[in-house]
């Protein structure tokens, strides 16, 4: 490698390293803003603002889903296996919404710790399998220890 080329290589390496460091600091500074949602633990720790639109995300607790008298409003709990938030939502839930499924809700946290959502999105997990396999997994899981459903971990 000629000295000239070596110099150019060094300059490019320096530039890429500089950009990487700058981007690293910028992303670290904006870390909180880059989070798409707060976890129930973060809300419990008081990191989420009250009476301000935020998103919360977690797994719908099994058996917590309750439909209100008007037939459209639902109440359910979400959890990150540490803390729990109760969510109230009026409207149509997405196809993937079910108990044990991850969801993200947009809304406001009231003083009474009830989260009133204006939008509920289902969060898909990274598992793909045929129904028979899911059934078989669920069966072996149920026979084993009791706990969360297969698709929630």
């Amino acid at each position: 490698m000629t000295p000239k080329r070596k110099k150019r290589l060094m300059l490019i390496a320096l530039m890429v390293a500089g950009v990487a460091i700058a981007a690293g600091f910028a992303l670290k500074a904006f870390n909180e803003n880059l989070m798409f949602f707060y976890t129930p633990s973060a809300v419990a720790a008081g990191e989420a603002p009250v009476n301000h639109p935020i998103r919360v995300g977690g797994l719908v607790t099994t058996g917590s889903m309750k439909r209100q008298e008007d037939g459209l409003t639902v109440r359910f709990d979400i959890t990150d296996n540490a803390k729990t938030i109760t969510i109230q939502y009026t409207g149509i839930l997405p196809d993937l919404f079910r108990e044990g499924q991850g969801i993200v809700a947009l809304g406001e946290l009231g003083k009474d710790q009830l989260f009133v959502a204006s939008e509920v999105l289902a969060k898909h997990d990274e598992n793909y399998m045929p129904p028979e396999v899911a059934d078989a997994l669920k069966k072996t899981h149920d026979e084993g220890t009791a706990g969360s459903a297969v698709n929630t971990d």
Partner: peptide, 10 residues
């Protein structure tokens, strides 16, 4: 690195 709606790598 962050909470996202998009699922993690499969």
């Amino acid at each position: 690195w962050w909470n996202t709606l998009h699922q993690g790598p499969t």
